[in-house]
């Protein structure tokens, strides 16, 4: 094993690049996940079905509603009342399409439909250029360059499947993954057979982590534990220094 400081520095630099590029890449690919495209289409259809006299108002997060979202005021001819109710969609603050949604003053259906169409087109753009593009690129690299890229393709596929099913990001939610990548890169740089060992081990650990968190996010048992703040969701456990 080479334990020279130069290799250590190289490993640190490569680890930083993998984490930053990987995070950015997964974020961009997730924006074009088919679930996001489908969601954008559902929002457009929902707005299309709303009566033309409906008015949308942006409501900031408050004590009652933790997420900001739209309130739609619709005239109900049966009761002769104007009914204000939450809209079915909640633009997410860290989404690249968040600035598209107007938040000042009442907005008519036509404006909201126009923004929903832009949102859909943006998602389609992410789907074509980042989602399909990244899978194609990794597949091409796995065939033409090195089969190690196939491990990255597998991690991306598992991550996108988990994202589509659970609608959450899972990468880097566990701090030990940084250590896995760091050590993996250091082992990878040792060369020869250790390169393959490092790629496979790191890939397997990241995959297991994603699958585990996917299970935790969707299983009913964990859901009830989350609601009751028990087990891994006990707030006291988060306060411990370890």
């Amino acid at each position: 094993m080479d334990t020279s400081p130069d290799l250590l520095l190289s490993a640190l630099w490569l680890t930083a690049k993998i984490i930053s590029y990987g995070t950015l890449g997964l974020f961009l690919v997730s924006q074009g996940n088919p679930r996001e495209v489908r969601g954008a289409a559902i929002i457009f259809n929902y707005l299309n079905a709303i009566p033309p006299t409906a008015i949308f108002r942006w409501r900031k997060p408050d004590a009652l509603h933790k997420r900001g979202g739209y309130e739609v005021t619709v005239y109900n001819s049966t009761t002769d009342e104007e009914e204000a109710k939450p809209a079915i969609f909640h633009p997410i603050r860290f989404s690249p399409t968040y600035p598209l949604w107007p938040k000042k003053g009442p907005q008519p259906k036509s404006v909201m439909k126009q923004r929903a169409m832009l949102n859909f087109l943006a998602r389609l753009f992410f789907f074509i250029f980042f989602f399909l593009g990244s899978f194609s690129l990794l597949g091409w690299l796995a065939v033409t360059e090195s089969w190690h890229w196939g491990v990255a393709l597998e991690v991306l596929a598992v991550h996108q499947l988990a994202f589509a099913r659970a609608y959450r990001y899972f990468v880097w939610l566990r701090g030990w993954l940084f250590a896995v990548i760091g050590i993996g890169v250091w082992v990878y740089l040792q060369g020869e057979v250790l390169t393959t060992v490092a790629v496979c081990t790191a890939g397997a650990l990241v995959t297991i982590s994603i699958l585990g968190q996917w299970h935790m996010a969707t299983s009913r048992r964990f859901q009830s534990m989350r609601d009751l703040e028990m087990g891994p969701f006990d707030p006291d456990r988060w306060k411990r220094p370890w």
């Binding site: 006299t53 409906a54 008015i55 005021t73 259906k109």
Partner: peptide, 10 residues
């Protein structure tokens, strides 16, 4: 209709 609702009411 939306423009009218915006400056008056639905």
């Amino acid at each position: 209709q939306g423009e009218l609702a915006q400056i008056t009411s639905p």
